[in-house]
Structures are given as C-alpha cells and as structure tokens.
Amino acid sequence: MKTEPNTIAFPRPSGHLTEAQFGELLASSAKNTDRALTPAEEHLLTCEQCTAELAELREAIVLFRGATTAYADDQLRTAAPIAVRARGFLSPTLRPMYFVAVAALVLAAFLPIQAVHRRSLQAAPPAAAASAALNSEQYAAESDEALLEDVDRAASATLPDSMQVLADPMGNTDLSVQKSNQRKY
C-alpha cells in the first residue's frame, strides 16, 4: 500500500496557522474539551483572522453537509424500494438444509425407478429361459436329423468316402454311376 508522509510541508503564512494545523483544527471533533490546548488552539485565542477564517470554513462545510443530505433525501424519495429478499431467498443458515432436502427429493425420485428396473430384470429370466430352451430343442432336433442323414449316407455307401479314390484311381468314372453299379451287383 502506498503510504504518504504524515506531515505536510505547506507554506506557512507568517504568524498564522500552518495548513496542517488548520486542517487538524477542521478535522478534529470538538468532543474532547478536557485536554490541554494545542499551540494551534492557543493561537486562535489571539488571532482574529485565523479564527474568522476557520469559522467561515466550518460553516461552509456544515452548509455543504446540510444541503447534500437534503438533496440526497429528496432524490431517495423517488428511488425504487430495495428488494434484496427476492434475489437472495436462500438463507445462509438454512442453506445446508435446502441442499439436504433437494438430495432427499432426488433420492426419493431415483430409488423407485431403480426398484422398478430391478424388478423388471428379475421378471425377465423365465421368458428368456423359455425361449432359450425352445431354441436349444429345435437345434437338437435339427442336429439329430442331420446326424441320422449322415449315418444313413455312410451306411448306404459300399466304400467309405475316404477310400473312394482308390476305387477309381484314374478318376474317369462318375462316382454316382459307379455307386449305382455296385448296388446292382
């Protein structure tokens, strides 16, 4: 913070109060009358010029205050009323309670949703299991049929598929024709 010297080197008129003394006399309140007189106050007892000037300036300042106060009061009459409560309705002391209440409301709204969701999940398995069982049954039936067809094909063949190459080394004969001939014999 910028500080400035306490004493001010104002030009001092010969034999009269310095500016600092003048300022001190103006700024001081006249409440404390028990204390001893300062040199400036002693000077005032003997110097009419300084006394008159000080009195005039004090009077001007009193007038300044009176006029400014009256003017401000007059201006304030037409001012809009202060509406602080409408903007800051959350009392600082009650603010934690507001937050707790809001949290409770959120929980109260969230928990039933969660419960419903959980219930729906629990209800879902029987249907899923049923459909899964149905699928597995269909799959088993189909696979059984395919297996039976494979067995039937293997049993009807005279040569295993792996040895059919040996039966016709040249590879000229149609396999289906050969098979039919073999059945005839």
Binding site: T3, E4, P5, N6, F10, E19, G23, A27, E53, L57
Partner: peptide, 17 residues
C-alpha cells in the same frame, strides 16, 4: 493508515480552503 488518512484530509482541506 491513520497518518495517510490525515494527510489526504489535510490536502483536501487545503484545496477547499
């Protein structure tokens, strides 16, 4: 600080005077 307040006040009064 008190001294700064006085200093500013005396300067203001000097101008007004």
């Amino acid at each position: 600080p008190l001294g700064t307040v006085k200093s500013h006040l005396y300067r203001a009064l000097h101008v007004i005077r």
